[in-house]
């Protein structure tokens, strides 16, 4: 079991509010990802769940039990730190068994558990080394192993891959996903990298400035972002936004193309770069002047400026014949539009 519920969690550090009321449930066995820009309070939230920090107000429940006042030691959770926090003076084996030695577990069982984790993470040949004698990726495995041997109710991981190079990050990400599939233990994974969030998560919690902006599945967030922040944060390259005014269910994009929109008054119309394609020569189109072309082979990324100067990015498949300075004419499926009101919330 490992259901985690947060109710009205707030946290302030010496009078400065950092977390402004979080309500959230993470189901047993779920891999939830907290994602948001640096400094938005992801670590603080995770540390409160771990029991390393106390919320200023609000309650934390694990499997229905209020653990707000319970010490970190008694919550039965395991944490993987961003810095790994391996004990530098101990061998890998000692690092892995240290936590188990605090329980009354017999020596043989400890050895067996450590060996199991070691085999699972393929670090058996490193057991007698010290952390300084390991590469970044190997240290990461040991840190994860130290969490696994404890057989915790849930894993908490704070930006576990941020100290690895891009290639290693990709392969460790896949391994973590595999690990979660095998263990089926609840995991809360913190990252500022939306790609990590999209690829790993069952459920993504988007945070900004200590507030939850949206909770949904990766595709749910991608397809129906509830506000401008989420729309801009999820997806790469970022969504294009155009300011417009809606009158009688119609709004005009820069260059004069009219589209149907819900609502009235000032709106922001968003469209993902991948949803734009070259328009037929005589069809109405969204036009722009090409500023920069990035030909990647399979796709071509075009940076352009709309008639009113708004910057936009287009991802076209293949290698269309385009030149910088030319006018580009773009079409899109009206269903691909995301429309947000003046308050930044999604309309419709």
């Amino acid at each position: 079991m490992g259901q985690i519920t947060l109710r009205g969690i707030r946290k302030s550090f010496s009078g400065v509010d950092v977390i402004h009321g979080i309500d959230l449930t993470i189901a047993d066995g779920e891999l939830a990802v907290f994602v948001g820009p640096s400094g938005c309070g992801k670590s603080t939230l995770l540390r409160m769940i771990a029991g390393l920090d106390r919320p200023t107000t609000g309650t934390i429940e694990i499997d229905g039990q209020d653990v707000t006042r319970t010490s970190a030691a008694e919550r039965g959770l395991a944490m993987v730190f961003q810095s790994y926090a391996l004990y530098p003076h101990m061998t890998v084996r000692q690092n892995l068994s240290f936590g188990l030695e605090n329980t009354r577990m017999p020596k043989n069982d400890i050895t067996a558990r450590v060996d199991d984790a070691g085999r699972m993470l393929e670090i058996m040949d490193l057991m007698d080394r010290r952390p300084t004698q390991l590469s970044g990726g190997q240290r990461q495995r040991v840190a994860i192993g130290r969490a696994i041997v404890r057989n915790p109710t849930a894993f908490l991981l704070d930006e576990p891959l941020s100290n690895l190079d891009a290639e290693l990050r990709g392969s460790m990400r896949a391994e973590l996903a595999g690990l979660h599939d095998r263990l089926k233990t609840t995991m809360i994974y913190v990252t500022h990298d939306q790609i990590e969030a999209m690829t790993l998560a069952d459920k993504i919690v988007v945070l900004r400035k200590g507030v939850i902006e949206q909770v949904d599945t990766p595709l749910g967030l991608y397809n129906r972002p509830q506000n401008l922040f989420v729309a801009g944060f999820i997806g790469a390259p970022n969504m294009n936004f155009f300011n417009a005014v809606a009158v009688d269910g119609q709004a005009e994009l820069p260059g004069g193309l009219r589209v149907a929109v819900p609502g009235n008054g000032p709106v922001t119309i968003g469209i993902r770069p991948q949803m734009l394609h070259l328009a037929d020569p005589d069809a109405p189109a969204l036009t722009g002047t090409i500023r920069l072309i990035e030909a990647l082979g399979a796709e071509t990324v075009v940076h352009a400026a709309a008639a009113d100067g708004t910057a936009m990015v287009v991802v076209l498949s293949g290698q269309p014949a385009l030149r910088t300075g030319e006018t580009i004419r773009l079409a899109f499926d009206p269903d691909a539009l995301h429309v947000f009101g003046a308050d930044g919330q999604r309309l419709d």
């Binding site: 029991g51 390393l52 008694e74 004990y87 240290f98 936590g99």
Partner: peptide
């Protein structure tokens, strides 16, 4: 964070002192 890791592992204070 070494101390926090030890805390997560429910390490008694005397053991933290001796071993860390």
């Amino acid at each position: 964070d070494l101390y926090e890791a030890a805390e997560m592992d429910a390490t008694p204070p005397t053991r933290v002192f001796r071993r860390i």
